[in-house]
Design a protein around this nucleic acid. Structure first.
Length: 432
RNA sequence: GGGUCGGUGCCCGAGUGGCCAAAGGGAGCGGACUGUAAAUCCGCCGGCUUCGCCUACGUAGGUUCAAAUCCUACCCGGCCCA
């Protein structure tokens, strides 16, 4: 346990080694400042009712700071979320209404809590919502306290604004003002929580620096900024999506732990090291060792397995991660027909599943319906097409275009495994 | 408020009266090869009771044997002017 006043001096070097430092305010003075405990914050706007993988770097970085002995604040953007950050966006967004925002906050806040320790002795994490100091703030006061310190010249020089002014979409005054709200957050946290540093993705640099400037102008005290590179895949596209293009949500309702786990398993080799370094808490030394082992025998997918285990258990807990892992072993392990009842029953909670009436067995055409019910296909046309393309298996056998499900296909009197291609699996339970 | 340009399938983007369920690209899906990887190649890619029908090119009407394409009104967005 670290004492209240001692911090891990290796933190900054470790962040660099993990590829988490994109830009900082003057590096030497920042490194010097980090020798003593500092208060830092990262903001998360509740644009949906769940965070996704793209938000994880921020949460994990806060975690690293807390573990190193610093004070961390995660900020829910209840106010900023109502306005919409133009950074990295080419279109004006629709405004959230109050109900939508409240629902989003309700979903996001518990997720923000889960990555940090709010009970930790000496440096418990804090969770704040910027509505607390924004909602009642009068426009006049805002113009005098915040607006007066910022020139429009600076504001329109920001990339986020420039891009929109040069594009054909324009930018509303509302979104244009976003950076002032965010800057004000930093200033408020500085004055009320002793917060000296804000962190974020590299697209946040302009907003963060504006806040840091505001702090300096109002208090003449130093304020620091750190950004990490936006998490991208080897091919340059953003992370946070599965190979299939689905957003990797952190909430189990939006994406089951099994699918989440599978999303990581399908990582390509060239991204293994980066993901281990940036999204897990494994020491860099261990990351290097895993990567070396992985590269020696890439076909064993050691790196992918480790990534999936680590990240799934951070997000969904160890138990859920083990469940997803076991289900994966079942699904990708070998002949389905050899599986025990227990293994099949376990699958039920992990993969998409459907039920089928016993009386529908041996009926012509029952397969098409079942494919739709089991979420293998979204229309009859697609189901037919898949069958024609040899894309569907019942248990371990490819199904012919005119096939139907018969009683003899049912395993243990009860289950049926349907696959689309190699990776999509549904479990069907025969009932009645 | 005036002028002007534009709104096409998941995205980008062709199409300016019939040959348009709509070129091309991307994404996605399936197949081959593999390692649940990458790359590559092949096929598919609105729905259905599938030799046909329905729905679809911002919305609502209209002209026409026939409209994504022409007309009218409206809605939304960009740019310029006020």
């Amino acid at each position: 346990m670290l004492g209240a006043m001692s911090v891990d001096l290796n933190l900054f070097d470790d962040l660099v080694a993990r590829g988490l430092v994109h830009d900082t305010t003057d590096r030497d003075t920042l490194v010097e400042r980090l020798r003593e405990p500092i208060t830092v914050y990262v903001g998360f706007d509740p644009t949906a009712d769940s965070l996704h993988v793209g938000n994880m770097i921020g949460l994990m970085t806060l975690r690293r700071f807390q573990d190193a002995g610093h004070r961390v604040i995660s900020l829910a953007g209840g106010a900023t979320g109502m306005v919409g950050d133009p950074s990295g966006k080419s279109d004006e967004r629709n405004l959230l209404d109050d109900d939508g925002l409240a629902a989003n906050l309700a979903g996001v806040v518990p997720q923000l809590r889960q990555f940090l320790d709010f009970e930790r002795e000496g440096n418990p994490a804090k969770l704040l919502d910027n509505r607390a100091w924004t909602v009642g703030y009068s426009y006049l006061d805002f113009l005098r306290d915040v607006g007066k310190h910022v020139t429009v010249n600076q504001m329109i020089a920001k990339d986020s604004v420039k891009n929109r002014m040069e594009g054909d979409q324009g930018i509303s005054y509302t979104e244009f003002s976003y950076m002032l709200l965010q800057g004000h957050d930093f200033a408020w946290l500085h004055e009320n929580e002793g917060c000296e540093m804000q962190m974020g993705g590299s697209d946040q640099w302009g907003n963060i620096v504006l806040g840091a400037d505001l702090v300096r102008r109002r208090t003449a005290k130093p304020a620091y900024a750190l950004t990490w590179p936006l998490l991208t895949k080897a091919d340059g596209t953003k992370y946070g999506k599965t190979a299939g293009g689905d957003t990797m949500w952190l909430s189990a309702e939006r994406m089951s732990p099994y699918r989440f786990y599978q999303g990581w398993i399908q990582t390509e080799d060239s991204d293994v090291e980066k993901l281990l370094a940036q999204l897990t808490l494994l020491p860099m030394q261990e990351v290097k060792a895993i990567v070396a082992e992985h590269e020696a025998e890439p076909h064993r997918r050691i790196g992918q397995r480790r990534i999936a285990q680590e990240i799934t258990s951070l997000v969904h807990g160890k138990e859920a991660a083990e469940g997803a892992e076991a289900a994966s072993a079942v699904v990708f392990g070998g002949a389905v027909s050899d599986l025990s009842v227990g293994a099949l029953e376990m699958l039920a909670g992990e993969v998409p599943s459907a039920t089928m009436n016993r009386s529908d067995l041996d009926q012509d055409g029952n397969l098409i319906e079942l494919l739709i019910g089991a979420e293998i296909a979204s229309s009859k046309g697609e189901a037919t097409r898949l069958l024609k393309q040899n894309g569907v298996s019942i248990n371990d056998t490819k199904a012919a275009p005119n096939a139907s499900i018969s009683g003899s296909d049912v395993l243990h009197e009860k289950f049926l495994i349907i696959r689309k291609g190699k990776k999509h699996v549904s479990l069907v339970e025969v009932v009645g």
